[in-house]
Structures are given as C-alpha cells and as structure tokens.
Write a protein that binds this DNA or RNA. Sequence first.
DNA 1: ACCTGAACACCGTTCAAGT
DNA 2: ACCTGAACACCGTTCAAGT
Lengths: 183, 183
Amino acid sequence: MERVKSLRVDGQRNRERIVAAASELVARDGAQASLEEIARRAGVGSATLHRHFPTRQALLEVVFRDGVAQLCAMASAQPGRNPAAELAAWLEEVTVYTATHRGLAAALLAGPEGLSPEELCCTDMLLEVLTGLVARASSAGAIHAGATAEDLLRLANAIAVANEQDAPTARRVLRLALLGIRP
Amino acid sequence: MERVKSLRVDGQRNRERIVAAASELVARDGAQASLEEIARRAGVGSATLHRHFPTRQALLEVVFRDGVAQLCAMASAQPGRNPAAELAAWLEEVTVYTATHRGLAAALLAGPEGLSPEELCCTDMLLEVLTGLVARASSAGAIHAGATAEDLLRLANAIAVANEQDAPTARRVLRLALLGIRP
DNA sequence: ACCTGAACACCGTTCAAGT
DNA sequence: ACCTGAACACCGTTCAAGT
C-alpha cells in the first residue's frame, strides 16, 4: 500500500480507509460496487471519496495495483525454458487471476481515466512484462508475427471479463485461443 | 417483429412501442440504457414495461432477436467450401455484428433470464448454427477436438463485449484467437 | 386484463458551510 | 487544506387505485 506524501495525516488515513473498504466491496459486488456504500463503510462522506478518487476507475486502479504488481513479478521469477510456453503460462496465470478477482477485468478494459498521471496503471504494468515475453518468443521464432502484446492482453482481458467468477472456463477458453482451431 | 396473440390490442401496441424505444436507446447507450427512459419514450408507465418484460435481459433478447436470426440465416446461405474456413468466416461475421450492435454482447453473456420459456433465446439460435458448422469441420478433420461450439461462442462473445464499438479490433483479435500463436 | 401514477429505497455528483 | 452534510437529479421495483 503506497503513501501519498503530499497529504495531511487525516487525508492520508481517509485515503487508506477508502481503498480498504473498496477492496472488500468490489470483491463482493464487482466493478459496479456502490461508491456511496464504500464511503459509508470507510466512515467518510461521499464528497471525500470523490476528492481522493475523481473517477471510479482511479479507485479501481489503486485497489488492484498491488495484486497486478505481484503478477508481474511472477513472470521474471520463472525459469527460462521454451519462450512460447513461458508466454502462454504467464498469460494463463494473468487470465485466471483476473477472472478470479471481481472487477479487475472491467477495470483493465475501462482504462485508467482519472488516475494521477505519474502513477503507473495496471494495464501498463502488464503490457511491459508481456512485451518482453512476446519479444523473446518472437525472436526465437516460437510465435507468429500477428501475435502482438497489445492484442494478446486484449484477448486475455476479454476472456476474463466474460468469465468472471469462472476460472476453469476462462483458462480453458484462453488455451483454445492460444492454440487456435486447426488440428 | 413477432406478435403475441394472447395480448389485448392495447397491450400489443404497448409492447411494440416498448421494443422500438428500447432498440433506439440501447443502440445509443448500450445494455445499461435506462428502463425509465425507455418507458418514457414509449409513452407508457414504467410498471407497464416491467409487466411486459420482467427483466432487462428479457427485453434485450427481444430487441436483438431479429438481427440474430438474420445472422443465423446467412450461415446456411454460404457456399460449402472448406468447412474450417466457413466456420471461421461465420464466427467472424457474428463477432463483428455483435461488436457493432451495442448491448448485444452483454445480452448474450447475461443469458435469457426472464424470457418466456417457449421463445428461443439468441444464444440458442447461434449455438444451433455453430454446432452444425463445428460438426462438419470436425468430421472433415479440419479442426481439433478441443474446439467446441460452446467455447467458440464464448470466445466470440468475450471478444465482442470487450471491443464494443470497435469492429476492426474485434475482428483482428478473433482471427488471432482462431489462428493461435504458433508460427 | 391491463394500465397508471405514486411511493420506496436507493444511486452519483456537486457545493456551501464548517474546522 | 481538508472534511461534512445537504441538495440535486436521477435510478429500478412495486403496489394500490383506476378503466
């Protein structure tokens, strides 16, 4: 959980409470969780929530940032075997994680609107890792040229958002998509 | 536009007006279009809308039924060339159509809850066609066994819902998914 | 049988007033 | 600087009263 130095102590504490309350309620209700209820549970006025997070997406980005960072760290920690298999395995982990954590896929699709520009958004973190994996696999001739990092992330996000709360299906459909339909 | 014989003439007319208003507003605002506003534009009370369509999904199903039926008709009208290419081409058309018509992908993912059971829902119409195409391609050995009609529709819907209003991207990502990542 | 309008319990956003 | 509570303009759902 990061600090925002420029805030007064009470502002700092409110911000942390809002993020904690949002984490609980987004996990329960998904990306559409009531902002009113989040403010209520955090013990702040609704106007305070809006000052700290000008848009719903800005709040969601902060809620999910730590988890996504962990996911990104897992990629580099993997052994360097077949680069196409490595790419596929990490994309599968991302898809399962995203399908499992309610609201995350929707947040990734909606983009980081309203996030303060110096902060790295979740999509950018994922894209950075994925670009590296795609480059390695590509220069090893292990994937074809049409498979870009951007489209692969779009594909994974699409499958996750359509299969929120159903990780086995999300994983199976992603595998199908990475494999294609030819025999 | 189908008739519902069991309705009084005024009920019949109200139902048609509701569907017409819903078509306009869903095209403009997507699947989350305000039911209140739909009722207002149709010139009926909101309670009347709820009586005719107990859930939002039931209304969406009726709004999109004709278009989906046309899509299904196009499949059988195609020449019988390479069965895998035929399957891919139709799935691409479905994806582009779904990505282009706001609210349709969300309606397909949400399912037909609240629709009167004797009516065929959009998903069932699409699955029937797709099952035929998959069977033909499969028995010709043109696709692998893991590619089921259900998962392929899930895949197409996922890509469409994540790329609503961006048909070129939806088409490109679907092609990537049908091709896979291998060189 | 079917419709209407009002009632109920919610929303998100903004703004004046406070400390 | 930051917070609060109230105000505003919306929602979806349900129900008593009408024709």
